[in-house]
């Protein structure tokens, strides 16, 4: 899977500009499903037809990024975040625009509170311009962080693991899944990072009987971390609740039971801040029993998000157990 993961994390796709990542994923899944289409909001929906219950699996294909808000007289670009971007991870980072143009994030030096973390408004992107007229970028252009994929032992490190690792899990499932008694819709959703927007509209269209999101979750296993009972390498995490949803108990039980039957390691997850597409899926139309399988991830929303390869593999195995058996 490493090659697939590398390809997905390194592809450009901030919220609202998912065309490139969508094309990449489309090429990966098309051979393994009956039908692929793009819905009104831009989410990619792969359908593997079956007679059983309608299952929606969701991973979001967008990533966090920045958008140019202003180009000053000297050609420096101010920006606004797309999704949750911390100034801490910005300084010294490089960003790339859709067509490959590169910029570096700098920080104003004259600050009253120079010993404090600067605000995003005090940062700018240097795109190598000397003035407004020769700036290669314009107001409204989106960009993403640049950071190549790396592997260190079983740890995989990249930008946009959130949630390309979920996308990779779902692509891998489609590759391996031969038979399923279910009617399976796999959604690669847009605009999760700006408010779970794509999942909501896709789920409305699909009207599933059950929804499961695959996304990253935080861990409590780093120095002086806030308490959280999720560790890297201890198995995929079955969501109990987060700040946006309480997982449907039957979906949670289903994931736990399948893991135990198959001897797949898993952890239970309670996330105090943050949520996933499952929260949006749960509330469409008359409501959908929904849950989430999380891949534990350190340094979420930094350009160096870290997951463990075994958690990814076990996540694939666990979801295959769910899909190959009756609910």
């Amino acid at each position: 899977m490493r090659e697939l993961i590398k390809k997905l994390v390194e592809t450009y796709g901030p919220s609202g500009a998912e065309e490139q990542i969508r094309d990449t994923i489309r090429a990966e899944v098309e051979p393994f499903v009956d039908e692929v289409h793009v819905d009104a909001m831009g989410s990619l929906i792969a359908h593997k037809k079956g007679d059983g219950q309608r299952i929606l699996l969701d991973a979001h294909m967008d990533e966090i990024g920045v958008m140019v808000t202003y180009v000053d007289e000297k050609g420096f670009a101010r920006f606004t975040p797309i999704g949750g971007v911390s100034p801490l991870t910005c300084i010294g980072s490089r960003v790339t625009f859709e067509d490959g143009k590169v910029g570096v994030i700098g920080v104003e030096q004259k600050r009253d509170d120079a010993d404090k973390i600067p605000k995003l408004e005090q940062l700018y992107i240097d795109v190598g311009a000397t003035g407004r007229d020769d700036s290669p970028v314009q107001v409204g252009d989106p960009a993403v962080f640049i950071r190549p994929f790396a592997a260190q032992g079983t740890r995989l490190i990249a930008k946009a693991m959130d949630d390309r690792i979920g996308c990779a899990v779902l692509v891998e499932i489609l590759r391996r899944l031969e038979e399923t008694p279910h009617d399976l819709y796999v959604v690669f959703a847009v605009q999760e990072e700006v408010g779970l927007r794509g999942a909501r509209t896709s789920a409305y269209g699909i009207e599933p009987d059950v929804g499961i999101a695959v996304d990253v979750t935080r861990t409590g296993d780093t120095p002086e971390a806030k308490p959280m009972a999720v560790k890297l390498g201890e198995g995929p995490a079955v969501k109990v609740q987060d700040s946006g949803m309480i997982a449907h108990p039957k979906v949670r039980r289903l994931l736990v039971e399948r893991a135990e039957e198959a001897g797949i390691p898993y952890q239970l997850e309670v996330l105090e801040r943050g949520t996933t597409d499952a929260a949006a899926v749960q509330l469409v139309r008359s409501g959908v029993p929904a849950g989430c399988l999380s891949i534990p991830c350190r340094y979420v929303h930094s350009p160096s998000e870290m997951v463990d390869e075994s958690d990814v593999e076990n996540g694939v195995r666990l979801l295959l157990e769910v899909l190959q058996n009756p609910l």
């Binding site: 819905d39 958008m67 202003y70 409204g140 909501r200 509209t201 896709s202 269209g205």
Partner: peptide, 23 residues
């Protein structure tokens, strides 16, 4: 002109999420 991104909100915020989504 392109409005400076990231500020304000309009009815489009509600409309684009209606039903299956609206460009």
């Amino acid at each position: 002109q392109i409005k400076q991104p990231g500020l304000g909100g309009t009815d489009a915020g509600a409309i684009h999420l209606a039903r299956e989504g609206v460009p």
